[in-house]
Design a protein around this nucleic acid. Structure first.
Lengths: 190, 190
DNA sequence: TGTAGCATGTAAGCCGTTACATGATTGA
DNA sequence: TCAATCATGTAACGGCTTACATGCTACA
């Protein structure tokens, strides 16, 4: 319950994951993040999951319970406290979302096409489409795993958004690749 | 020319900006970044621009020239050295681009819709569409400023990609908002 | 007179990652 | 017995931001 400085958004993301579970260990939270947060936020490293969990516990937003394991080492499982749920609700209600941050290595390459040359740019774009296809499959599997469960309606919507997003990227990349092949086309010009 | 550890990608982005100019001051680089890098990478803070420029100069990838100002304080202008150009080319040629990193506050809110409630989610999505419209206008102005200059063909392509990207986001958000209004398979019922 | 823009930096600090250390269990 | 997975952490460090400090010019 120390400090009243603002939490980083990733803390709220973790709080949000806890809101989907009655209890979860750090390890489980990391696994869950890999199937969810990873696609639209970050999936924090294990070490960060643990330190965030400690911060949340320090502030009384989460509570830890020691579960003795089969060996000598035990597992700490966390759950959302009423204060944690209230703080998450407050944040969702009051804080205005920033514009997304995008770090797009392929676009950076395209931007530097005058140095890289068109052949390399084409290769980069092709590789990106490849990566996107893989992502779409991953998301499709995750979406299928969610099913119709009304409890998971919003995660399902996000998964659908993600697939649409990636498909849009593929279309956009193809359009750029097309413009690279025939630099004269497209509206407005000449 | 100290150190041979890998440079962060932002250094290459700065190197790339320098490749578009014969010379530029830190201040000019920041302004240029605000019109370019900002949309697909980051626009580094002024303080970071200066420290990156120093790093590039230390490594011999950029060269600084002191230009006396009207007052006592002078301006340092940087230019790409042959070694800098070679290193940028090597990076573009050899380094494989990572998948983009997206930190999407609106998607995070949607993901937590079960806590935020549908009314708040609708407001968040509306606000996001608003932001997107603003971004599209910004990019349109920038695209118009680039014009037909073949020297700036690739930045032009990136600006077009950006506009398409944002329009795609608007479509996707509208689709999600639609699914929120009519939960579709409402027949089943618990 | 004061504020906005041009211009250059230093210092402090947080977020997040990688590397490292440790220990238990399962199965090949 | 070796590797993989489960499981929990600490330490070090880098990237990037914010806050702060400074000085000059133009202009309202």
């Amino acid at each position: 319950m120390s400090q009243d400085t603002a939490l980083p958004i990733t803390s709220y993301a973790l709080l949000g994951l806890l809101s989907l579970r009655s209890e979860a260990s750090g390890y489980e939270l990391k696994q869950l993040a890999d199937r969810t947060l990873r696609f639209f936020w970050i999936s924090p490293a294990m070490s960060q999951v643990y330190s965030e969990c400690n911060r949340l516990t320090d502030r009384g937003l989460a509570a830890a319970r020691e579960v003795p394991g089969p060996g000598r080492r035990s597992t700490r499982v966390f759950r959302l406290t009423p204060a944690g749920r209230a703080e998450l609700e407050r944040w969702l209600d009051e804080e205005e979302p920033d514009f997304p941050i995008l770090k797009h290595p392929a676009a950076l390459r395209l931007f530097l096409g005058h140095v890289a040359g068109p052949a390399r740019i084409r290769a980069v774009l092709d590789g990106y489409v490849e990566q996107l296809s893989g992502r779409i499959e991953e998301l499709a599997r995750i979406r299928a795993g969610i099913g119709d469960d009304p409890h998971l309606m919003y995660p399902g919507l996000v998964a659908e958004w993600g697939q649409r997003y990636y498909r849009g990227e593929i279309d956009a990349v193809r359009a750029i690749a097309q413009r690279l092949r025939e630099p004269k086309s497209s509206g407005g010009g000449s």
